[in-house]
Write a protein that binds this DNA or RNA. Structure first.
Length: 415
RNA sequence: GGAGACGUGUCCGAGUGGCUUAAGGAGCACGCUUGGAAAGCGUGUAUACGGGUAACUGUAUCUAGGGUUCAAAUCCCUACGUCUCCGCCA
């Protein structure tokens, strides 16, 4: 959510952001409504002040046995007027609020402008594409050889777009999760949280998944609850509606969770194996920081995620997302893409974003600074990492000629 | 799922329709006092949106949303949450 004052003072910036992010939001209508709301609020305040003043006189008048018929009649009229005005005010607030929900965050000035991922900017890479003296297999062939996954039976339990890890496959996935969690906790000093993966509507608004992505979410109708598409939702909303002390900041959290995505609109895309799933596991990092620290923190979180791939010895590259590829709530995002030699493709395994105060405003997460001023925190999150695609790269990179997988030592100690 | 109790500020806690401008206490901050500390004393202590150069000031917020009333923390309805008991299930 953007501050209405900010919108008012930066109309052109906001309109440009909406256009560059391929969003639709009617800023002119918002400004008109805000003006009207302000006027209505003032009318209400004045009349209400009058009502309170006179109401306080009534008991005195009654005590003096004065005739209050006339004054009561007058007050009755004020009361009615107030009702009308306050219902207008409610309508205006509601309308304004629902429009503001659709205004995306402003991209940071460093973010390349462009309408889709073809404008993403290459930043750096680490390691080299693995080379083989035989023709490397892709992860599907490898998992078949080693019996790591079952992609057929799983459709009986649920349907397509789900995976079952079997035997050593399940062990590898579990090792990955434990390895990553441990790494962030011990080496990067994050605090582990284990939170619900079922959240209410308010939380989904808080982190900005709603209203835009409702179609992409699994909904539990009876309760109006959602399955989280990422642990970011649970972690960030952990502090929903709080005023923290500056002494508590920065907060660094890491959490493992399954993630649920309907992937509506991407049927038939990347359906092969582990590429795109309705349910997958992910280790997620979230930080709440003071505003002046957030961009430095973004760089640190990128390094935290990179460290995992380095430890696993997987070649990757980092790109900075263009405005059109940026998520609704993000001001700046780095994607880490890992190389999978058998598939001969880079796969996105991490997305690290700075939301500045966009989520903090929606979820109302504030802090009292050194001068006792209440300000919004900045929120950031990053995958560290998503397991299925990491698994693809892992299997394909460490395959041997005989089709066996020779896993790096950092993982085998977790198996 | 059934029955009941409860929900007040940072926390505890008073408050059954107007004398509440939410008492009182604790905590916290600052000051006085002290060689230093503690105790004591004094002062301050929410958030949001308006108005004003400012001191200051108007409105809203007692879980949330509705209702009754000239007037609601207080009465009524609904939702949510917490706790207790019962039932059911791990």
């Amino acid at each position: 959510m953007l501050d209405i004052k900010f919108i008012k003072e930066n109309v052109d910036t906001v309109k440009a952001a909406i256009k560059n992010k391929n969003e639709k939001a009617d800023i002119d209508l918002i400004l008109d409504l805000d003006e009207e709301r302000r006027k209505t609020q003032y009318k209400y305040d004045v009349l209400r002040a009058e009502q309170k003043k006179v109401s306080q006189l009534i008991p005195q008048l009654k005590q003096q046995k004065a005739d209050t018929t006339e004054i009561l009649a007058e007050m009755s009229k004020i009361s009615l007027d107030l009702k009308t005005i306050s219902s207008d005010l409610n309508d205006l607030n509601e309308k304004l609020d629902s429009l503001l929900q659709w205004v995306p965050n402003i991209p940071h000035q460093d973010v390349p402008v462009g309408k889709d991922e073809t404008s993403n900017k290459f930043l750096k890479e680490w390691g080299k594409k693995a080379e083989f003296n035989f023709k490397p297999l892709d992860h599907l062939a490898l998992s078949e050889k080693n019996n790591l996954l079952d992609l057929k039976r799983v459709t009986k339990i649920t349907g397509s777009g789900f995976v079952s890890y079997v035997g050593e496959g399940a062990a590898i996935e579990r090792a990955l999760i434990n390895f990553m969690l441990d790494f962030h906790i011990k080496k990067h000093n994050y605090l582990e949280l284990s939170l619900p993966v079922i959240v209410n509507r308010k939380s989904m608004y808080g982190t900005g998944q709603l209203p835009k992505l409702e179609e992409d979410m699994y909904l539990i109708k009876e309760e109006d609850f959602f399955l989280v598409p990422t642990a970011e939702v649970s972690i960030t909303n952990f502090h929903q509606n709080e005023i923290l002390s500056h002494k508590q900041l920065p907060l660094k959290y890491v959490s493992y969770s399954p993630c649920f995505r309907r992937e509506a609109g991407s049927y038939g895309k990347d359906t092969k194996g582990l590429q795109r799933l309705h349910q997958f596991n992910k280790v997620e990092m979230v930080r709440l920081v003071k505003p002046q620290e957030s961009y430095q923190t973004l760089e640190q979180m990128l390094i935290d995620a990179e460290d995992i791939l380095k430890a696993l010895g997987l070649h990757y590259r980092v790109v900075s997302l263009a405005t059109g590829d940026l998520s609704f709530a993000s001001a700046k995002t780095y994607d880490i893409e890992v190389w999978a030699p058998g598939s001969e493709k880079y796969f996105e395994v991490s997305s690290i974003s700075n939301f500045e105060d966009f989520q903090a405003r929606r979820a109302s997460i504030r802090f009292r600074d050194e001068n006792n001023k209440v300000k919004y925190v900045h929120t950031l999150n990053g995958s560290g990492l998503a397991t299925p695609r990491t698994m693809i790269a892992l299997l394909e990179t460490y395959q041997q000629k005989d089709g066996k997988i020779d896993l790096p030592e950092c993982l085998t100690s977790f198996i």
